[in-house]
Design a protein around this nucleic acid. Structure first.
Lengths: 147, 147
DNA sequence: CTTGCTAACGACAATTGTTGTTGATAGCAT
DNA sequence: ATGCTATCAACAACAATTGTCGTTAGCAAG
């Protein structure tokens, strides 16, 4: 994702205004590869700006999405996640235990079988690897930290 | 998915009871390839059983899932969809306009790149083709039956 | 066929994630 | 500096799903 300053300029050229609230969100997202939920962004923003409202965070990430600066992902974890990585094409890995999401660059994704192409125009192919990360999963040996 | 009668037997061996409500849901799902939402199942069930409650439908599809007789899909369409096809491995195609979901058998799905496998155990790989079906999409020519 | 345990029922309230409304405030182009 | 209006915070509304609870009825065993 672009820097907070670049986004400020971009927003202004689009007739959008850049408030302290939005700058805080820009900063929280820049270089963030944790795929935060809107709610976790909200929590983070509140530490430096206690009166910011959840609605403002939603509105800002939607604006960012409309400008192609983030992707909003629904990975079946119950809430939307913000993915600031729009530069490089990638897929996702999701831990079904802790909710961790990580980018996975794939050199090749499947294509829709030919006989479906007449009746369906594919705009995007999404691949999700579901499983357990090493923080959650039963390590092959040692420390039976089961949970 | 198995027939309503087979499911009745299976439920009983598990100590679950089979009520008229559940049988109605079994019947509505058998041979159904439309990936209904819980709500549409609820509507369908109410036509023959006006007092059935939404909670009962939720409970029954969750029981079916626990017994491995259906899969509950979250395809980002806002609500869960019930997929009774548990016999053959397949992926899904989703129309972003009308919400249509269709099974797509894939001969091959991507695998997680080697360097991620040390830190993550993949349980399932999900592929979603997002796009527009021919009912919704701009037909190349003729009948502008838009919307 | 009766009996009894308890799973499942319907009705309704509660929760969670997200969006709509509104009047006041403040960003920023001129 | 000024004014238009986008954005704000607060709050209500919404949709999908789950929890609670007192009552009913499935069904296994006798």
């Amino acid at each position: 994702m672009r820097t907070a300053d670049e986004l400020t300029g971009l927003f202004r050229t689009q007739g959008l205004r850049v408030t302290p609230q939005r700058q805080a969100i820009f900063r929280l997202l820049h270089g963030n590869d944790r795929h935060p939920t809107v709610d976790s962004l909200y929590d983070a923003a509140r530490t430096e700006m206690p009166t910011i409202s959840l609605k403002t965070v939603y509105q800002t990430v939607h604006d960012l999405e409309a400008l192609g600066q983030v992707t909003l992902l629904d990975l079946g974890t119950g809430s939307v996640r913000v993915d600031p990585n729009v530069e490089s094409d990638h897929q996702h890995l999701v831990c079904t235990s802790c909710g961790l999401v990580r980018d996975v660059p794939l050199t090749e994704v499947p294509s829709l079988p030919a006989r479906y192409r007449r009746e369906f125009r594919t705009d995007a192919v999404e691949v999700i690897f579901r499983g357990v990360c090493d923080q959650c999963g039963p390590r092959p040996s040692k420390s039976p930290t089961n949970q």
